[in-house]
Design a binder for these strands. Structure first.
Lengths: 229, 229
DNA sequence: ATTACTTAGTGTAAAAATTACACACTATAT
DNA sequence: ATATAGTGTGTAATTTTTACACTAAGTAAT
């Protein structure tokens, strides 16, 4: 119902759960707050939605401001609006997640002044989080667990070229269970969204694995058909 | 980011997509607006979130005010926040869906004054909708299509006691395709969430079918295991 | 060049799930 | 008694899923 527009004191924000993968562990990006409330606590990066931004634009801007990253696959997944979730007033927040490959270069560019610092922390050992951010994170993890079974989001966590073992590793981390190597390969290849390259892995002290990349074209053709893990 | 709370003129609302099933068709509840903008247009029922309500509470209140219904399974599914979606200012809206069985008695109790009337309209023949409500509806339908494959939400559209044929009918309507009778029964029974009653359907001029009901207890035990259609 | 080490890469058989498909039964209405 | 309309049921063929272990290839150290 939207025909009358009272001026209400409500604030609408976006918080981001950025999952990162460095080849070993799943991490999330947290900031250490520099201001009250929850000064010195770790929190999810977030910000207030600007008056002329769409929600997705706003999420992209926030991600960019906090990390310098652009062009990342992000998706809103839940709105949190408990009237008491923020000690200073009513703040409804919309949670987005993003999946990012870590390592290499382009890391953590300067951060807005409300944070002392930002850091990628392994999800296996998270500190207490400010506000209801633990809940937001939990729901985000749950979300990508479900999503990775049906959508090709695992690739976002990997470099453009990757080995099947690396891909399996990502699935195992997100789903939280071991998968059978042969069955995994059989299945993932049968989806027909991988392109086998002529290249091999480099810099390893054992037999180098074949590199693959995700084939967006092939995936686009499959549209509608469900992938299922 | 939530440490400073500027007073912004933003409005946060909830819109509901109420899917109803009368035994024949899928319908949604629409209201005919009585005020500008979009006076005389059909729109989704919605309202502004109160300052001390949680989002779910607010959605329940709105549903109750518009229909008199309580205790309905509702879930938020997407936030719409295009800066231009409302001609009079910034309104971010959170969409909820609900599934309701129609027919019988408890229908459409008096409606707030912003609507001329409210009506259940078949989804196969919807009018043009106000604002971006067509988009909101589309996304809602998409959502329940996916959800009905994995969660026991079909039962919300049926009376407490129902026949397997009625249940199949609901699945067919939502998924938009025919299902094989024998395979459907085999599968739905194998989930083990139905309780066969000693009762038979009444008032039909042919062999009466056995009635079933959804067994919440059994379903609770299955928790974690995925249903899949 | 031999050896030790580490991961890559591969096939099959058994079990389970899915699909396609047709007819006799039962209740009611006339 | 007969026509009608929907109920309720089984099976064989196919596909998908699961469980499972060894050889091949490359690197590093000697």
């Amino acid at each position: 119902m939207e025909q009358i527009l009272p001026h209400l004191d409500s604030v609408f924000s976006i918080d981001c759960v950025l999952f990162g993968f460095d080849g070993k562990e799943l991490k999330i990006l947290l900031i250490e707050r520099n201001e009250e409330p929850f000064k010195d606590w770790w929190a999810l990066p977030g910000n207030i939605v600007g008056p002329d931004e769409s929600l997705d634009q706003s999420a992209s801007r926030i991600l960019y401001e906090l990390t310098g990253l652009r062009g990342i696959y992000m998706e809103q997944y839940y709105a949190f609006g408990d009237p008491n979730r923020h000690p200073q007033g009513r703040v409804i927040t919309l949670a987005y997640y993003a999946l990012i490959r870590l390592g290499g270069d382009k890391e953590l560019r300067p951060i807005s002044n409300y944070a002392k610092r930002a850091n990628w922390l392994p999800i296996t050992d998270l500190p207490k989080l400010a506000f209801d951010h633990q809940k937001i994170y939990d729901k985000g993890l749950e979300k990508i667990k479900r999503r990775i079974k049906h959508q090709p989001i695992a690739f976002e966590l990997l470099p453009e070229k990757f080995t099947l073992t690396q891909l399996q590793h990502v699935y195992e981390l997100v789903l939280g269970k071991k998968l059978d190597k042969r069955n995994f390969r059989k299945k993932i290849v049968s989806f027909g969204v991988l392109k086998e390259l002529d290249e091999k892995q480099k810099g390893v002290s054992y037999r180098a694995a074949t590199l693959y990349k995700f084939d967006k074209r092939k995936y686009a053709k499959l549209f509608g058909k469900e992938i299922s893990f």
